[in-house]
Design a protein around this nucleic acid. Sequence first.
DNA 1: CAGTCGTGGTG
DNA 2: TCACCAAGACT
Length: 340
Amino acid sequence: MHAVARTREGAAPQTGPEAAERLARLHGAVADWFEAAARELPWRAPERTPWGVLVSEVMLQQTPVVRVLPVWREWMERWPRPADLAAEAPGEAVRAWGRLGYPRRALRLHAAASVIAAEHGGELPGTEEGLLALPGVGAYTAAAVAAFAFGHRATVVDTNIRRVHARLLGGDALPAPSLTAAEQRRAAALLPHDDDASVRWNVGVMELGALVCTARSPRCDACPVAHECAWRAAGEPPPSYVPKGQAWHGTDRQVRGAAMAVLRAAERPVARELFTAAPAPGTPGTLGTPPRPGIAPGTVAAALARLHALNTGPEQLHRALEGLIADGLAVEVDGGLRLP
DNA sequence: CAGTCGTGGTG
DNA sequence: TCACCAAGACT
């Protein structure tokens, strides 16, 4: 580091009294914008609980708010406290997870609830360190829960915040493919020192990224800090790299997803042959249940039909099922598979 | 550390 | 239509 802070072209100084004033302006502008434009979300309501915040944060990992909302409400009604979930079989969490995706998150949430019930007297740890020790809780989620549930000063860095920082301060269209140490340092340096102000900044920048400074078509006309934006000042240059798309069709993940849908629909273990074999006409698909025609949609047979429609090879199917077992999302019983 | 892990809305 | 993307974690 040089004695005098050098910044990239187009970016303002990041140290000194001038920078401090600018930072204070940003804090105020974002807080005011959030006050006026933020969504009302149940995990932000005054009656929220730390448990509810944790559940929301895990559900929101790689999953849009609109799809989380109904599932989160179900979970909170059914399992208002960690001990309530811990008392259930893990498979119930997976089933209630529905189609949110990445079902291992449900499993980890159940595991976290068990740890909280068994080792923390049923109360969530209030520190980042304590939260970080919970299954499924990484750096982002630990910071988010510490901030949003406990009001602590924590450096929250999610994909929205990364994108806002990249544009506003870095002058780039998009953040780097993966979180860098420099980004974390920058995020920490931007955080207000006051607890309450830091929480407002974290949630404000995150909401700004979610509603205005979006990945594809940012609504800069609605941005409270557009006049401070380094990316706009630079003429909105395009991304310096090409995002590598997420393959889906023909992947193990697709097969795993279809297999999980079968397990979620099944009340009994599903025989392995039913996963692998060509669809037998009128087969309910559960052990101990005699075949009958006319299975209604949304049942095991329908899920099996969707799985078979993928025309996956037997080796890939085997790999997918073994993967689910290895991940604890399926357990083998008497030649069949069921939720844990 | 690059790869893996679901799902559905959308520009 | 179809690739991109969404409050990441873990190995």
